[in-house]
């Protein structure tokens, strides 16, 4: 399949409470096999999906947050987090999991997957995509 499209998965909802975040991640993992130009966006309550220290023992659902740490192995290395969404929720980059990948074009140097972008920059990123998966 020669076509390479810009795919962005837009995560807008909290990780628990509804199944959207988990089932979004399932599409990302399957989609990784299709060699597209993939990125993930985290906006609104979606920023909670990649918070560190998640503990779901009180609600008896699976804590799937470790899967985000594995995204680098699937060559999903572009995670954009909206600055305003974090600020509105009193979060900073330190509250998020340190998600990284190994850059094969740079002697496997470990690099950050997360980029914090402004709302205006996020709008530009959305504009550049061929396909938007909204979850």
């Amino acid at each position: 399949m020669a076509t390479i499209k810009k795919f962005m998965y837009v995560n807008r909802k909290a990780p628990y409470g509804t199944v959207y975040a988990l089932e979004s991640l399932e599409v990302v993992l399957i989609g990784a096999a299709f060699d597209q130009d993939v990125s993930l966006a985290f906006v609104d309550d979606g920023v909670y999906q990649i918070m560190k220290g998640q503990d779901t023992s009180g609600i008896e659902v699976k804590n799937f947050s470790p899967i985000y740490s594995a995204l680098g192995d699937y060559e999903v290395t572009k995670l954009y987090v909206e600055k305003e969404s974090m600020e509105e929720r009193g979060l900073t980059l330190d509250d998020l999991m340190p998600l990284v990948y190994e850059d094969e074009d740079d002697d496997w140097a470990e690099k950050d997957s997360i980029t914090v972008v402004s709302r205006a920059e996020m709008a530009e990123l959305l504009e550049q995509q061929d396909v938007l998966f909204n979850f």
């Binding site: 399949m1 599409v27 399957i30 989609g31 299709f34 396909v131």
Partner: peptide, 12 residues
């Protein structure tokens, strides 16, 4: 069928 059908449809 599988999720690959969704990704494939989005590509094509």
């Amino acid at each position: 069928s599988g999720l690959g059908q969704l990704v494939e449809a989005a590509i094509e």
